[in-house]
Simulated assay, not measured.
Amino acid sequence: MRRLGSNLGAALGLSLAATTLLAADAEEGAALYLEHCAACHGLEVDGNGPMAGVMTIKPADLTTLVSGNEGVFPYERVVKRIDGRDPLVAHGSPMPVYGHFFEGGAGALKTQNGQPILTSRAIVDLVRYLETVQQ
């Protein structure tokens, strides 16, 4: 009985964590984007920031994440690119190079297959903002 209660508690905890996206703050994410991402990805989130011209690999147009993924927002891929679990050669290190700004404060997002992916609260907010700018 104790084990069932423990498993139920863990499942409830994951369920609550997975709904963090619903409580995410897209406005906070927009502020984070402007401060940390716009120089490369642009004010229009289209990959045409002022630093784009000097980068070896052109920054992605972040408004097409859904259209480039069969109509589904690629939560897992986006989170892993931002937090450095899926590093980009163009950045030479985890993206962004100042990724420590996105550390701390636990958060989670539910991926397209329903599984939660754990990350920081700042990344949850940033991803929520990116969801709002999809074409």
Rank of each mutant, 00 (worst) to 15 (best):
M1K: 06
R2G: 06
R2S: 07
R2I: 12
R3V: 14
L4S: 07
G5I: 13
N7L: 11
L8I: 14
G9Q: 13
A10M: 14
L12T: 11
G13K: 05
G13Y: 10
L14N: 07
L14Y: 10
S15C: 04
L16T: 14
L16C: 12
L16W: 10
A17S: 11
T19E: 13
T19Y: 04
A23G: 05
A23W: 03
A24W: 00
A24S: 10
A26T: 14
A26P: 15
E28F: 01
G29C: 04
Y33F: 15
Y33I: 11
E35D: 06
E35S: 07
C37Q: 03
C37P: 03
C37T: 05
A38V: 08
A38W: 01
A38H: 00
C40I: 10
C40E: 02
H41Q: 12
H41K: 13
H41C: 05
H41W: 12
G42H: 02
L43A: 08
V45I: 15
G47K: 10
N48P: 00
G49E: 01
G49W: 00
M51Y: 02
M51Q: 09
G53S: 12
G53E: 10
V54E: 13
M55H: 03
T56N: 06
T56G: 03
I57S: 07
A60H: 02
A60P: 01
L62G: 00
T64M: 09
T64E: 09
L65G: 04
L65Q: 04
G68W: 03
N69P: 06
N69K: 09
E70Y: 05
G71A: 11
V72M: 10
V72H: 05
V72A: 11
F73M: 14
Y75E: 08
E76D: 09
V78F: 02
K80Q: 15
K80R: 15
D83T: 06
P87M: 15
L88E: 14
L88V: 15
L88N: 06
A90S: 12
A90T: 08
H91K: 02
H91L: 09
G92F: 09
G92A: 12
S93P: 00
S93V: 05
P94Y: 04
P94F: 05
M95P: 00
M95E: 00
Y98T: 12
Y98M: 08
G99L: 08
H100V: 11
F101S: 05
E103K: 10
G104W: 02
G105V: 03
A106Q: 06
G107E: 04
G107Y: 03
L109V: 06
L109D: 02
K110H: 00
K110M: 13
Q112V: 15
Q112S: 15
N113E: 14
G114P: 03
G114R: 07
Q115A: 14
P116C: 09
P116Q: 08
P116I: 15
I117A: 04
L118F: 13
L118I: 13
R121I: 03
R121A: 12
A122E: 10
I123T: 15
V127N: 01
V127R: 03
R128E: 12
R128P: 00
Y129H: 12
L130A: 04
E131H: 11
T132A: 05
V133K: 10
V133Y: 01
Q135M: 14
Q135K: 15
